[in-house]
Write a protein that binds this DNA or RNA. Structure first.
Lengths: 244, 244
DNA sequence: CCAAAAGTGTTGCTTTTACACCCATGA
DNA sequence: TCATGGGTGTAAAAGCAACACTTTTGG
């Protein structure tokens, strides 16, 4: 900030500051994102990430949490900053600098008709990110395809060395359910036995509840909560994916 | 952006968008950051990260690169976005949303008297980040201590699995010089022999120039350039540091 | 009974770590 | 000659991958 000699805002053209949210969940064994259908120009009819203006009195993270609650009714899910996208011209109307946030939610709420005029919808991320797909600018508005891709990549990378995957599960979950998260987000098959050893062997990573469940079928499984240790060292290595 | 019904800027109070830069280098076996002494209120006399306003026609990254060149005269060094800091009240004068960038430079230029009014200076990061240090709000202006800490942590983390360390070296460097980067940034001692095997064994990570040098003293060492492979898999594990 | 998922044991392989040892230079 | 850093060898330990096998439920 060394060169801020004056603070007359009229010297600088107006800039809008917004948040955009990559909200991911797992539905029907598929990694999906919450998107809204735009009801007006520009990009009318395209999907867009949910988001909105940052209010004068709130932090960027607060703005993201507020938008999330407006859109889903849910609070307290995992939320982290992803990056900021501010190229001139990314919004044709005016200069918009947008802080993107990555959010993860378990048990996705059915959203059709949030508080917003536009309709929110869960869409499989493969709809937009398949490598075979041509760049279809009319499908995702603005630079939101890039933001979505960055969000998915962040989530994939963090599964390796952190407890992020538990953010896709309810408060109590089985090792098998946690493994399904890895398999779906990475698009790979993992060896159930080695995975089990890995996560239960990392001290403090999973906290046993003492309860059992048979909700997955088969032999009853222990229920766990996320433990205090949220770093996996050594990490779970991501195999080369069979599917993108 | 679902709730942007209108785009009348007057509906929203003015927001300034700036970039702040965590520029790191290695000088005298010490990890140092480029900081400026503030010549005016607020935080007059404190250190601050270099930075400035984003111009209407430039991207955030362009703004960061421009500020870097103004401050150091150097171009083309490593530059990546670190995160965005926008809490209300972080700047007492007005709402300022700042995109922070991490930059790394080898062979630090002597900076005293850049194009700016304020004086730039290389300062060891331990001056600000030592765990033993009390929170001294008058030392680093605004929330710049947090930004600096985030930048250093990003650099430390990325050494593990990427070729980022080469950004601290000139275009040609020896394995020993590269290892010194790791040791200084992490504050640990590494086994020179195992390190050598690791980096030379990762195919494509280092590209031999065919040249030798004796500039470190001792037996002549091969000179390398950074190779095409910029991911280390498996990573170099960071030992628990002996010094912060 | 069978199918399905949980969980344990074992084996061979790769990687890491620690350290002995030799090499090539400058002083 | 010695000190200094470069580089190879090697063996023990740790970690990983593959898979045989047992356990406990539901249907």
């Amino acid at each position: 900030m060394s060169s801020k000699q004056g603070y007359d805002p009229s010297k600088y053209p107006p800039v809008a500051v917004t948040v955009d949210i990559v909200l991911l969940t797992i539905r029907d064994d598929s990694l999906e994102a919450l998107l809204v259908r735009r009801g007006q120009e520009p990009f009318k009819g395209s999907y867009a990430l949910p988001g909105g203006f940052v209010r004068p009195d709130e932090t960027l993270a607060d703005a993201a949490a507020r938008e999330l609650e407006e859109e889903t009714g849910a609070r307290g899910m995992h939320l982290e900053q992803l990056g900021t996208y501010g190229d001139p011209g990314r919004d044709p109307r005016m200069r918009v600098v947008s802080a993107a946030y990555l959010a993860l939610i378990p048990n996705p709420p059915e959203v059709t008709g949030g508080s917003d005029a536009e309709v929110a919808e869960w869409v499989p991320i493969a709809t937009f990110l398949d490598a075979s797909l041509p760049e279809s600018p009319s499908l995702l508005a603005f630079d939101h395809r890039k933001i979505l891709r960055d969000g998915v990549e962040r989530a994939r990378a963090k599964l390796e060395y952190s407890g992020l995957a538990t953010a896709f599960c309810g408060t109590e979950f089985t090792v098998g359910e946690l493994r399904r998260v890895y398999e779906i987000v990475w698009g790979v098959d993992l060896d159930a036995r080695n995975f089990h050893r890995k996560v239960t062997g990392t001290l403090g990573f999973l906290e046993p509840t003492g309860e059992m469940t048979t909700r997955g079928g088969g032999r009853p499984a222990q229920l766990f909560r996320r433990g205090a240790t949220q770093t996996l060292n050594p990490p779970i290595l991501r195999p080369t994916p069979s599917v993108v």
